[in-house]
């Protein structure tokens, strides 16, 4: 978080111990600025998904607190994108995207109009009436992103959303996500285990270590947006990747020690 920027959510001394006794997270403190694109990078089992679920309010921390300086989030302030598209198979793409609005009691007609608008934003205008099984993996993920953004949330939480996709689709969705973020300026917390993806997307990377999960490095990627294919092949990109890789290696070594 850059100095002077207002913080959207602040975690202080957060820990999570599961009922089994496993310490999933230990003493995590993190201030997430409004409009920030933060990547949580770490090996599997470092508790990054747990951290995300805590911010979403789906899991309660065992210790520490999560504060929202601008007031607690409402039912429509947080969007969540899971690793799987997690769509309702019995509903069309349009009905899936309209779901958060309908759950909030918005009349169907208006909800569907806004869902249609959002589907057009993710380039799925002609697939409104399609059922999830008729869509490709990348398209399903677009529907999932549209659903997360349809409420115009302040915070978008993404849990390794593109990990199951092929590289070509992943690169395209990376660019589309950055475009959406640039246009609407919501805050993003993006969980990933890919150094390359985190450097390409994020303005700030929190590197995590496992057992117990904790943040070991907090790195800024001060490169201008929009970032395109030129950035992906630039020397600056390679330098950042090297820096982040080293931080990740150090995190893994700290675990072994």
């Amino acid at each position: 978080m850059q100095a002077g920027e207002p913080s959207l959510v602040t975690l202080s001394g957060v820990a999570k111990r599961y009922l089994t006794g496993t310490l999933a997270l230990r003493d995590v403190s993190l201030a997430i600025g409004a409009g920030e694109f933060l990547a949580l990078l770490g090996p599997s089992g470092c508790g990054k998904s747990t951290l995300l679920r805590m911010i979403a309010g789906l899991t309660v921390p065992s210790q520490g607190r999560i504060a929202w300086p601008g007031g607690p989030p409402g039912a429509r302030d947080i969007g969540f994108v899971f690793q799987e598209p997690t769509l309702m198979p019995w509903a069309t793409a349009l009905a899936n995207v309209a779901l958060p609005l309908e759950l909030a009691g918005i009349p169907r007609r208006e909800a569907e109009a806004r869902a249609a608008e959002m589907l057009a934003r993710v380039e799925l205008k002609s697939f409104e009436r399609a059922y999830p099984r008729a869509l490709s993996g990348g398209m399903r993920m677009r529907v999932s992103i549209a659903r997360a953004l349809v409420t115009k949330p302040r915070l978008l939480l993404m849990d390794e959303p593109f990990a199951a996709l092929d590289e070509i689709t992943r690169f395209r969705l990376n660019n589309d996500l950055l475009d959406l973020w640039q246009a609407a300026r919501f805050t993003v917390v993006f969980v990933t285990h890919s150094v390359f993806e985190s450097v390409y997307l994020a303005r700030r990377i929190a590197v995590m270590a496992a057992r117990p999960g904790r943040i070991t490095a907090d790195l800024a990627i001060e490169e201008p947006y929009p970032r395109g294919e030129v950035f992906r092949t630039s020397a600056a990109y390679a330098a950042h990747c090297r820096e982040v890789s080293l931080a990740l290696e150090a995190a893994m070594a700290a675990r072994a020690a």
Partner: peptide, 29 residues
Amino acid sequence: TDHNLLDLFRLYRASRWQVLWRLRLPTAM
């Protein structure tokens, strides 16, 4: 019911009735 979908409904603070009607019953169909 898909537990991720259940989490999603929780995130949007869906009522018990909404979870039953929009999620559990279609899954059980």
